[in-house]
Each structure stands twice: as C-alpha cells, then as structure tokens.
Amino acid sequence: MNESQQTAFEDIKETVGDVTVDNPKMCLKNIDVFYGDKQAIYDVSLDIANNEVIAMIGPSGCGKSTFLRCMNRMNDTIPSCRVSGEMMLDGEDLYGPSLDPVLLRARVGMVFQKPNPFAKSIYDNVAYGPRIHGLANNRAELDDIVVNSLQKAGLFSEVQDRLDAPGTSLSGGQQQRLCIARTIAVSPEVILMDEPCSALDPIATARIEELIDELRQNYAIAIVTHSMQQAARVSQRTAYFHLGKLVEVGATNTIFTNPTHELTENYITGRFG
C-alpha cells in the first residue's frame, strides 16, 4: 500500500449505513479472510435479503469477489485461504461442524466471471447438478428439470432443437445463460454472481440483466460487478468495498445519488477506481 492508500485504509472506521435487513437469508458477521499471511477482508458484516439483488462494487482488489466466494465456501478450494467470523444461512452456521460444504454449494449456487460450460452437451450441462444430487428419479423428471431451468434462464427457445450440441458451441452470452440454467437446476436458495457479464457484449449483457431481475422473484442474489450502471440497473441494495473493508451499504438509489462516505462518492463519481 502506498501512503494515500494507507490513509484511506485507516479512514475507513465503521461501515456507513445499515448492514442488517428485516428478512435476512444470509447473515455474515465480522468476516476476516486471509490468503496466507495477507489479510484480504477486514471485519465485514453484511446481510443478504430474500427476493433482493445486492450489488457489491469497488475498485479491483478490494475483496468483493473474495467476500462473495466465502458465502458458498468456494475459498475452501484454495489451500492457503483462511476464513473467520460468523456466517449463517437461515440461521445455520456455514462454517459449523455439522455443515457439509458440498451440500452448501447446492443451496448457494454460483455463476462465474467467464462462462464455463463443461465439455458436454447442453442437456448434460444442465443435468449435471440434478444428477450428482439425485434430484430426479427418472428420465422424465430430469427432462422436466432441464427444460424448466433452460426456460427460466431464457435460453430454451434458442437451443430446444439442439440439446445434444456441445455447450461450448454456444455464443458467449448463451454460454453464460447456460451456466445460469445449470445453477438454477439444483434449485438453490441463493445465487452468487461474480461479474457475470464482464466477458459479454452489451446485448448479451442486457439479456442477463433482465434475467437477474426475473430471478429475484425466487432467489436471493448477490452480484459482484465492475459496472456501476449495471449495479444501478439490477440491484436494490449496494455495498461499496474498499481495500478489504466494507465502506458503505444502502439502498441503491441512495448510494448512487447521495452517498455518505467520501470514498464512496469518489468512486461513484469516477474520481478513482
């Protein structure tokens, strides 16, 4: 960290705004994350509400993706990563001894930055999750789940006559919607999205954003994004991260029109980041 960063870092004392909500799906309290000796997240608390999209914004390296990956324990796959704090999903401790991270990831689905369909057919991509979790008892049920998920992801009409084609043969935007369908297929309760549109063109992005808005009816959604316009368009609440700390949380309207913290204002108005 250089000097001005150091000052800014020390300036961030306590999160501005209310981190809690009335109907929390997930409650995260006092989260610290370390990669080896390096601390990436400092004492962050945040609630994720049902039927709501929360956007996490902030400059690169501010820890928003790391924070997102704590929520389904994806950080477990990185050997040097250590997480401490309290995380609850419907009142159940995420890092408690009774909770299996594998089952957790079925309840908290994740869509990644780059579309990553498996080297399988479109059908098998969507059927992958239901198959490993035994969600369908026969082929007809599995077909139902696949068709349903593709419909919810707004992809079915485009691929219905070529479900056997490899997932990698789709365009980038279609691939990302395929990945969303794949996530929906295991009927998660929360969907985490890590910059889901950063590899897509504006038209594909618009489709995904519409989709996110529709999905909000059934899921709690947390999305990390670099595009402030996107955050403003799709989210109801916005959280601004800076240097591993949560600076400000609030209703998206307020954050973008009348931010309280100076750092948030600087970022929103494009003075840095």
């Binding site: 796959t77 089952l103 079925a106 990644f112 780059k114 990553n116 794949r182």
Partner: peptide, 12 residues
C-alpha cells in the same frame, strides 16, 4: 473454471 463450475454446483 471447469472445476470451479463443478464445485459451485455442489459436486465433490
């Protein structure tokens, strides 16, 4: 990314 996708769906 392939492995992440699979882990993200709750695969062991």
């Amino acid at each position: 990314a392939m492995r992440d996708g699979s882990y993200g769906l709750g695969a062991t």
